[in-house]
Design a protein around this nucleic acid. Structure first.
Length: 636
RNA sequence: GCCCUCAUGGCUCAGUGGUAGAGCGUUGCAUUGGUAAUGCAGAGGUCCCGAGUUCAACUCUCGGUGAGGGCUCCA
């Protein structure tokens, strides 16, 4: 007998022989049948052609579950491979998994795929879907599998690490695959091939580069449409485009990966910095500033030389080797060491808006998101082991406060000891536990990334979710037991002896440049008033009213409002449009009515609503209140 | 760094082996307008850089530089 839990929560017991896809569909009825795909057995996902053990407990998975979506995408990858095999019979296959945004399959082919190939392949896939071909599973022995894939060198290589090979067949295409899959190709309703790209075999740049085809797939047409809309929306919000349109920053060939901030971009940047400074001061941080070029010997001492030199810039000064700092810690350690410290002073919180240079690979540079020079809102907390937890909690609270100001929600990941780590494994364990305990105490759920920590310690990463649901890594809290050791940092304890402080590295924006990029996309350029470089623009209906308009501008300026104007002889429609494109939050119109009544017409540009007859002093108060409270939107 | 694509006025882009076009923007003039583009006129590039092929290269070839997408998700 086999117990089955259906998606609606109902349970039913079947004889083992009855467990077939058709039977499951019958069991859950027509409504849910379309969704019935696979089952979870002993927490492992299997499809319904998988031999199911006696007395197993099955939980039916549907398209609505993440596991179901995943499996769906994976099956689409097989359909892609089958279509490619039909069109290019001699091709060699790499791997074809599902990914967050869909699926891909890697192929080894002499000539790269052309866009025309993609269209052909898509049509071929359509055929396979229409034919509704069954996915068939077969468990085979290793020698059998080797024979089957004798012409597929990549599959043979993969086979080396497989104990119990299973083969999935879809038409002519056979793949080494542990599954599970949808019952048949007809289940795949909406898919689209999105791009071709080169990708290394097994992700290793020493290996051969294969041709990768990316696609997306959904159980329903409308979900595909929704996804394509999201892509469009993301493109509309692209910070590189908005940054250009709003004249926030530019990047030049003369300095790849090193953004030039124009007045308005720099204004927002400064606002971000000021805000963080204010928050840090409130928590008794000191704020330092250290040089960006430091002697090589310091980098050798800190371990950056061993672990980071490929990404560092070097220079020679007076016959001595110097490096441009890729991180701020060593500079702040030198400050710590300028005098003795007592346990009474701890925790010492040393902040720095530190300019760092990192020589990132040219191919990874992208707008403000991945640059070679940036400013970290860095800080180093020196504390005792006993203070770790309270300090971590203070940092989590601070991070929460900052992110919520921008309307971000976030999730947290804990990264543990990497293979290339420095320091005593026992200290690592202790550090990892300290971070996990603080998170548990704050009742924050977190994901663990084994082996993703920094070379000097484990870390907590914060990923913020933007307005359209995309996730960005920003803040990080890193524990470090090894740097204090290397630099022989000490404090005098109650017992009069020297002790080793613990060091916590932390950044909340991460990089001011990158955070600004994220904000541009998050707000789609519609910055909250407190950081908007221009808060309001005054336009006149005709130049007859320019005089009163000038007066209004003066009043607003006197109240500290950042206002500009467009008093040119253009139509009102044109002026409105221009202000929309430039993302000016508030548009003030002055015409005959306004001049007579000594008021302004206020348009909140983001939603396009217009309110007539607003008194200037009322407006000033509203704006000031909005700015003081750092509100996300302006409403009259 | 590697694979693919791309590089033409400030921006977005069209185009041809015989030394370049459009729209937007900008400037001037006319117009004095009520919430996403008023009309007309003018200025503005030598087609990313270097080499080669050719009588002739923005166009073809090679090299360089820069930009965009991808290179973690595993049979």
């Amino acid at each position: 007998m086999v117990a089955i839990t259906f998606p609606d929560g109902s349970k039913k017991t079947y004889k083992k022989k009855q467990i077939t896809p058709a039977e499951i569909v019958k069991g859950i009825g027509e409504g849910l049948a379309r969704a019935a795909l696979a089952a979870k057995v002993d927490d492992e996902l299997v499809d319904l052609s998988y031999p199911i053990k006696e007395n197993a407990e099955l939980k039916i998975i549907t398209f609505k579950d993440d596991a179901g979506k995943d499996l769906f995408k994976h099956s689409s990858a097989h359909v892609l491979a089958a279509a490619v095999l039909n069109l290019f019979p001699k091709i060699k296959f790499g791997i074809g998994p599902s990914i967050e945004d869909g699926f891909y399959y890697d192929f080894d082919k002499k000539e790269p795929f052309t866009p025309a190939d993609l269209v052909k392949i898509e049509k071929e896939m359509q055929k396979i879907v229409q034919q509704d071909i069954k996915f068939e599973r077969k468990d085979v022995s290793k020698p059998e599998a080797k024979k089957l894939f004798k012409d597929q060198k990549y599959k043979l290589e993969l086979l080396e690490d497989v104990d119990k090979p299973s083969i999935y067949t879809l038409g002519k295409f056979k793949d080494l695959c542990k599954g599970p899959h949808v019952p048949s190709s007809g289940k795949i309703k909406a898919f689209k091939l999105t791009k071709v790209a080169g990708a290394y075999w097994k992700g290793n740049s020493k290996n051969k580069m294969l041709q990768r085809i990316y696609g997306i797939a959904f159980p329903e047409e409308k979900e595909l449409k929704k996804y394509l809309k999201l892509l469009e929306e993301a493109e509309r919000r692209d910070h590189r485009k908005i940054g250009k349109a709003m004249e926030l920053f530019s990047i030049h060939e003369e300095a790849p990966g090193m953004p030039f901030f124009h007045d308005k971009g720099n204004f927002i940047w400064e606002k971000l910095k000021d805000y963080m400074t204010q928050e840090m001061r409130a928590l008794n941080y000191e704020i330092n500033k250290t040089p960006i070029i430091l002697n090589k010997s310091l980098w050798i001492q800190s371990g950056h030389w061993d672990h980071y030199k490929d990404s560092m810039y070097f220079t020679k000064i007076d016959e001595q080797d110097f490096a441009v700092k890729p991180m701020n810690c060593p500079g702040n350690l030198l400050i710590y060491k300028t005098r003795q410290h007592s346990y009474k002073e701890l925790p010492i919180k040393a902040g720095e808006f530190g300019l760092v240079h990192r020589h990132e690979l040219s191919g990874v540079l992208s707008g403000l998101f991945r640059v070679r020079v940036f400013t970290q809102d860095d800080a180093h907390v020196f504390c005792t082991e006993e203070q770790i937890q309270e300090q971590i909690i203070e940092l989590i609270d601070l991070t929460e406060r900052i992110y919520s100001t921008f309307g971000f929600v976030y999730n947290v990941e804990l990264s543990t000891k990497p293979p290339k780590a420095m320091g005593d494994p026992k200290l690592w364990d202790k550090a990892e536990k300290a971070l996990a305990d603080a998170l548990k105490k704050k009742k924050i759920t977190f994901k663990i990334n084994p082996g993703d920590g920094a070379f000097y310690g484990p870390k907590i990463d914060f990923h913020v979710k933007d307005a359209i649901g995309r996730s960005w890594q920003c803040g990080t809290i890193q524990l470090d037991f090894s740097m204090p050791e290397k630099f022989d940092l000490t404090y005098e304890g109650k017992d009069g002896r020297k002790h080793r402080p613990v060091m916590i590295h932390r950044a909340i924006y991460g990089s001011l440049e990158r955070f600004l990029g994220i904000l541009i996309e998050h707000f789609a350029g519609w910055f909250p008033l407190w950081i908007a470089p221009t808060q309001a623009r005054v336009i006149s209906i005709s130049k007859n009213f320019n005089k009163y308009a000038e007066k209004v501008i003066e009043e607003l300026k006197a109240a500290g409002i950042r206002v500009d104007s467009n008093l040119k002889s253009e139509t009102t429609g044109k002026k409105v449009r221009d202000s929309q494109i430039e993302k000016i939050p508030i548009l003030l119109t002055i015409g005959e009515k306004e001049e007579k009544a000594k008021t302004v017409a206020v348009r909140t540009n983001k939603d396009g609503k217009v309110k007539f007859g607003v008194k200037v002093e009322t407006l000033i108060k509203k704006i000031s209140d909005n700015v003081d409270k750092k509100e996300l939107e302006f409403k009259l």
